[in-house]
Design a protein around this nucleic acid. Structure first.
Lengths: 192, 192
DNA sequence: TTTTTAGCATGATGGCCATCATGCTAAGGG
DNA sequence: CCCTTAGCATGATGGCCATCATGCTAAAAA
């Protein structure tokens, strides 16, 4: 063992972390193993002692990305009284900052389309992340809200769709419209 | 000219058409020029006499895909009285058939994530398609609907997001929930 | 009928891809 | 203090990528 015994786990985490960012910003097919390892000052040789294949890394990177967002959103929610939680979450998710930093943002919005074409391990990791997001949204709906409030599935689909489209569209005004109108639909200003 | 004078335009259309399908089902990076031309019984040599580069083809394929969906949806809307148009469109868009045939479906849901990373020509073609979809949605909202109805941007974002997630998720039950709950949110059953 | 030329084919270039086989090297266990 | 071995490096394999240069061939123009 060249480095200390904990270094393998550390390198593994750095691979996942870097992959998670680069996948979201460049797409999963666009990031090669050799190129990715070079980011860490390593070469492609050792990769396969950490992961069985690229698919395994994609699954891990997916998990990592969802965990990260989940923790950040949990922090946002803790700082806010229960009635304002949904609004706070929506404003954070549909912000210009989130739109402009896909590498540090929601995996579903950045990689959802490509995930539909991937193998089972990655899709299962993705599904688990989605379910965690739905659970988090569930907790944001105040107790008294009746059938009028959007369900977690609807809220998540609208947020993902709006963020995705705001990124894809080349017209800045239209990009903002997606964010603003989706925000209004989920967290109407005329509310507590 | 080897074939009749109209054959160049015909071949060009066949390239666009095939590319449009394959891009949506396999992703734009996964379809190579040589492989694509082979689908038409041709080789890679002639490609660059039809398009300046791959980016130009992506833009054309994007246009073609949006046009096709637009025409199909227009056909659905014509067969239905004005009050039911939004519901008909939503049910068509959020159907299992659409979910399971991304190659023959909405460009935004299949390629939106990758479009955000593409060059200007493709993104402009994409934006034009989105604007056409928004215009079509605008016409679906009956005259009397007040502020309660979702705006076109919100409706489109929700539809795209729900379709995207229903495709990406590996759990069939969750996949259907996205489609059904989004459908209910946009075309509530307790309505004309 | 002859000549031009457009549409496509062939082939080359340089690059990147995932994956596997093997070799070095330094740290841990004895 | 030596020897095993784990972690990574080097290099090879076979394949696909976009793009450009050139050549063939048959149809249109003369």
């Amino acid at each position: 063992m060249r480095y200390s015994p904990l270094h393998k786990a550390d390198v593994r985490q750095r691979i996942i972390r870097t992959a998670s960012y680069r996948f979201r910003s460049e797409g999963m097919d666009a990031v090669g193993i050799a190129n990715l390892m070079a980011d860490l000052g390593l070469t492609h040789g050792g990769f396969y002692s950490h992961f069985r294949d690229k698919e395994a890394l994609v699954a891990e990177a997916c998990r990592h990305g969802f965990d990260e967002l989940q923790q950040r959103l949990a922090g946002v929610l803790d700082a806010v009284p229960p009635e304002q939680r949904l609004a706070a979450l929506v404003q954070h998710y549909l912000s210009l900052a989130h739109r402009d930093r896909p590498d540090d943002g929601c995996v579903a919005a950045a990689l959802g389309g490509e995930m539909a074409r991937r193998d089972q391990p990655s899709r299962q990791a993705f599904t688990a992340g989605i379910e965690a997001q739905l659970a988090l949204l569930q907790e944001c709906v105040p107790p008294g809200e009746k059938g009028s409030a959007p369900t977690p599935c609807v809220a998540l689909a609208l947020m993902v769709g709006a963020l995705l489209l705001s990124r894809a569209v080349s017209d800045p005004a239209l990009s903002q419209r997606f964010l603003e109108e989706a925000t209004r639909a989920l967290a109407p200003p005329g509310q507590a």
